[in-house]
Structures are given as structure tokens and as C-alpha cells.
Design a protein around this nucleic acid. Structure first.
Lengths: 205, 205
DNA sequence: TATTGCATGTGATAGCTGTCACAAAACAAG
DNA sequence: CTTGTTTTGTGACAGCTATCACATGCAATA
């Protein structure tokens, strides 16, 4: 697969060195890509699919933080890679996913030698940081109904589709809520003509 | 004030260039250092005092994210500085505070030329990112009683004192809760012998 | 068709938190 | 001491959310 169009800002030398050293890898939908405490040996650039980044607590509760799509990179793996530390989050392939793995050892060189890589890393930090802030905003200031709306809109934006194919249970897990609550709130949204509901699908209007 | 002992990892050349270009500035307790939407013209290294980084919503609600103390730097100002964008958060001086302001224009050079600066920046990103994740953890997985405990412990850790001099109202604001709730929870903690309460002070046992 | 499994709907209930109203206590300053 | 201000205590109540129990509905497959 030709990944270069996804990263048009990369300079030729950078592209070359990545091509020589990076490994392409495929994950099937549902496959775990990274789990808490795991050592990071490489930084991942997403080429295709969606990766879900989430947090897990002791009791098995989950909480979705954000998605990574094509052209994006995992900020956590970058930070961890540079310092070769462990990660505090989990990553799972939401759909079939293609990633480009860049070995840790390369990171320092790339940062020093390629301005476009350096800027890409900074840009990645910034956007993930902003995303985390908006997550905090959401749970700190909003009730479940608003969080659900935010969730659905974000989902639609990320997938590019107005139809979300998920079970209520899955949404409840992502929001660390319970199925019944989500079902009830979705019903209310349907009554307000914001969505249309069917088995395993929610259509945003 | 001699700031160098706070940043022992900085190499001599870096120290010199900072001394030539940076400006030292003082903020009185309670003074606003940065507010949402403001343009960032420099990166701040904290020399003395505590800076509170928080988020504000439309309705005037606040939510504490974390504190910055001596030897630390503002990750947000770094990211924003490098890209000369605006910030999404607020910073206020919790106590009288002394900071060292490094002009934006210097950032790129420092990153390229001084390994110790580069590592400092990465380290700063990492610790702020981790801190944000633990904030998300807290509000996503824990009730107010546990969040309060976390708040008190963090406060004690940051200030180095077991006695927290604050009003219940202030705590409620930081946690985006209400005064009565905090008062009641503190009472319960007192009954469990976790704290001792007095006007404007909470002693951790 | 009958069966099985998953997804969704619904009512009852309990706990947590936010809000209002007001009382009591601690402190500061005249 | 007296007065005014700030902080804290308390009861009542309402709304949101989690949980339990169970019903219903939809889809695939034998």
C-alpha cells in the first residue's frame, strides 16, 4: 500500500528513511494493538482504518478517549518511544487497520534531522492534547445526554458516515455508562427527531 | 533569583542563551497568567510558587486540571508557542509566583541545538499528558468522595504540607461541584478519621 | 417452523449529587 | 461587646444515573 499521500508534508529524505526502516502491519477489527503497561518498541502511523484509544480501570470499566484515523499517529507511542517507557492506555483496532511501525531507535534521528518530522510530532502532541482537554470538558461539564450527542457526532465525523453501526451496549461501554441509560436517552433523542433507530444502527438526522 | 539549580539537567550553552534572552516575571497570588483564547508569546518555566491550570465553561463553571510547581514548565505554552496558536486553558497564580519567560522565537533553535532542552520538552509533554489521563480517570471512574480524596492528596503533595488552607467553596469550584456536597463529604472523612477540619483548613491524617 | 442468541424496551428502586432555604459558628473591625 | 462578613452545618427535595428484573423483538440457523 502506498502510504505517502497520507503524509504529504514529509520531505523526500524522510520518506526514504521511513521506507527503508519501517514495517507495515495489519490488525483485524477487534484486535488489541496495545495494552496498559506494555513496552513500546515503535511509533505507529495509521494508514487505514480506525484505532480506538481508551482507558481501563481495575473493575473492567472502559472509557473511550479518542480515535486515530489515516494520516494520524499515536502521540502516546511517540512519547513513550522517545523515552522507552510503558504506556498507560489501551489501543484496539475498531475496524481492519493498517499501520506503519517506526522503530524507537529512529525517533531521535528523525527529530533532529527532519524538520517535517519534528513538526509532525509537535502537531500530533498538540491535537491529542486538545482532544484530551475536550474529553475532560465533556465529562466535567456535561450530563450523559449531552455526552451521548457528542459521542455520536464525533463517531459520524470520524467515520464520515451519518449512520453509526453499533449496539447500545457498545456505546455504554465507551462512555462508561450502562446499556439501559443509553437506550433511554437514544429514545428521547428519537422523539426529538435527532436520530432514527434500528437494530445495530443509529442514523443522525 | 538564581534559577539554575531548578533545572540541573540543562547544559551550559543552553543556560547561557536562556540567561541572555529570557525575562523573569512575578505574579501575585490570584493573578491571572493566561486565559482561554489568548495568544502565547512565550513559554514559561516556573521558578517559585504554584500555578493552577484549569478549564472554564460557558456558564462560569471551572474545573481544575493540574498544578505547576518550581522546575516545571507549561506544556500548553510550549505547544502553542511552537505553533504560535492560542491556548484552550486558563492559568492563575495559586501563590505568589516567579516565572522565566522564554520568547517563542527561541523555541525552534533551542529544540534543534540543545539536547537537554529537547529532552526537557518531551519530558514535560509526557508528564502533562499522564496527568491529564489521570484526571480523565478520576472523573470517568470515580465518585465525588474519591475525587475529593484525590484532590486533597494531590494538594498536599504539591504544596509539601499536610495542611490545606482553603475554603470548602474553593474546593467545590475546583471540582466543579457545590459547597454543600464538599462540606458533607469532608464531614464523613472526618468521621472516618481521615482529616481534621477547621475554618479554612483541612489537615490530612 | 422452532430454537437460540443477541439487541432493545420498560418499570421499580436506590444512591449520588446539585440546589434551595436557613441556621449556626468563626472571625474581623469598629 | 457589637455588628457585619465569611465560612460551615443541616434538612428537604429533585433530577440523573446505575442496577435489577423481566419482557419483547429481531435475526440467523438448524
Amino acid at each position: 500500500m502506498d502510504w505517502k499521500p497520507l503524509f504529504p508534508q514529509f520531505e523526500p529524505g524522510l520518506i526514504e528513511i521511513i521506507e527503508r526502516n519501517a514495517v507495515q502491519k495489519t490488525f483485524a477489527a477487534g484486535e488489541v494493538i496495545m495494552r496498559t503497561g506494555q513496552y513500546i518498541k515503535s511509533t505507529a502511523l495509521v494508514l487505514e482504518g480506525q484505532i480506538k484509544i481508551y482507558r481501563e480501570n481495575q473493575d473492567g470499566g472502559e472509557f473511550l478517549m479518542y480515535y486515530l484515523g489515516p494520516g494520524q499517529a499515536c502521540a502516546v507511542s511517540m512519547i513513550c518511544a522517545i523515552q522507552s517507557e510503558t504506556s498507560e492506555i489501551n489501543a484496539i483496532a475498531e475496524t481492519d487497520t493498517e499501520v506503519l511501525l517506526i522503530p524507537v531507535q529512529l525517533m531521535d534521528d528523525l527529530m533532529n534531522q527532519y524538520k517535517s518530522w519534528y513538526q509532525f510530532v509537535i502537531q500530533t502532541y498538540r491535537s491529542r492534547f486538545d482532544e484530551l482537554i475536550s474529553v475532560v470538558d465533556n465529562i466535567a461539564f456535561h450530563n450523559m445526554d449531552e455526552r451521548l450527542e457528542f459521542y455520536l457526532k464525533r463517531h459520524a465525523k470520524n467515520s464520515g458516515k451519518q449512520i453509526i453501526e453499533t449496539s447500545h451496549q457498545q456505546i455504554a461501554d465507551d462512555l462508561n455508562s450502562s446499556r439501559e441509560v443509553i437506550s433511554r436517552l437514544l429514545k428521547k433523542m428519537e422523539q426529538r427527531n435527532l436520530v432514527k433507530l434500528n437494530r445495530n444502527m443509529i442514523e443522525l438526522l
